[in-house]
């Protein structure tokens, strides 16, 4: 029983990272039907921005508590990655908005490589060890073990997700986002500033990925310029499982994917982890392309 509980905790923890990245994927797809393959690299960038801030500010932070410093750095990194997301949209995606879907997809892959190897040029190809790591003890819960660091990470992620959900469901700009995902042209005619809302979506999505990047750096203790690649694909899988375009679906999909991986590896062995995860991507795309919570796709004439 404690073993099963441990597997569930492992799955939930990994799932929260997937969720933070999957949200951005899903939001952008929901609003402009673009698979932003550079999104995983925004996560990586968040890790590096946090690394830089922590390295530069380590003297000033020395006295303060680790967690508070980390939250401040995370907030700054979120602003920075959000701005990068804005620029990315403005430079790489907006000029192609009326171009065929394939062109934008290819630009997205291009943007992904540009970010990866741009960081490799700037920071070098070596992995970097994070200057601050969340350590501390662990609590035992019915025989399973969870560290304080994991609890803090999960709490931060839940707060961020809750904030996003409130923003999208209860505010004016959230309503504009939802409206645009329904029909951008009608929104334009109704006087909604579509470009601005799309920019805002990119900002929020990228900021969440950036936060996940800082959290990954602080928890795992290592960042490198390719760290966004696999998690980008996993987040995409999570978004598809949950129903791409659906925000709550992205979180659900990420948790489901985390649990599937955790139990899948326990059952078949670690080398099967990715086989398992991506087999589920194929399964969902063929059997239930709208995902668990996806809206029914209605043909617009």
């Amino acid at each position: 029983m404690d073993y099963v509980l441990q597997l569930i905790l492992n799955g939930l923890f990994v799932g929260t990272f997937y969720a933070l990245v999957a949200l951005g994927y899903s939001m952008v797809y929901g609003i402009i039907k673009l698979l932003n393959f550079a999104h995983g690299d925004i996560y990586m960038l968040g890790g590096f921005v946090g690394f830089t801030l922590l390295t530069v500010g380590s003297g000033a932070l020395a006295g303060g508590g680790g967690i508070i410093a980390l939250v401040v750095v995370m907030a700054l990194a979120m602003v920075a990655t959000g701005l990068v997301g804005l620029v990315l949209e403005r430079v790489a995606y907006r000029p192609l908005r009326s171009a065929p879907r394939l062109s934008v997809l290819i630009t997205a892959v291009g943007a992904s490589f540009a970010l990866e190897y741009g960081v490799a040029v700037g920071y070098g190809p070596n992995p970097r060890a994070y200057p601050v790591t969340v350590g501390g003890g662990a609590v035992h819960l019915l025989g399973a073990r969870i560290t304080y660091a994991q609890l803090v990470m999960m709490a931060i992620a839940v707060i961020l997700m809750f904030g996003l959900d409130t923003l999208v469901r209860r505010t004016r700009s959230g309503r504009a986002m939802r409206a645009i995902s329904q029909d951008p042209r009608a929104c334009l005619l109704m006087g909604v500033n579509v470009d601005q809302v799309i920019s805002r979506t990119f900002f929020i999505g990228s900021a969440l990925a950036g936060a996940a990047g800082v959290m990954a750096g602080a928890y795992y203790g290592k960042i490198d310029f390719l760290m966004g690649f696999i998690i980008g694909l996993k987040a995409f899988t999570a978004a598809v499982i949950g129903g791409i375009g659906n925000i709550r679906g992205a979180v659900l999909g990420a948790i489901v994917l985390g649990l599937l991986e955790s139990f899948g590896t326990a059952w078949l062995g670690s080398q099967w982890r990715d086989v398992f995860a991506f087999a589920f991507l194929i399964l969902f795309l063929t059997v239930r392309p709208t995902g668990l919570l996806g809206e029914r796709v209605t043909e617009r004439v």
């Binding site: 990994v14 690649f229 991986e261 590896t265 670690s270 080398q271 982890r273």
Partner: peptide
Amino acid sequence: QSVTAGESDYSGA
């Protein structure tokens, strides 16, 4: 067991 290189989370292993 074998793990996948390039990931961050090895909690399964």
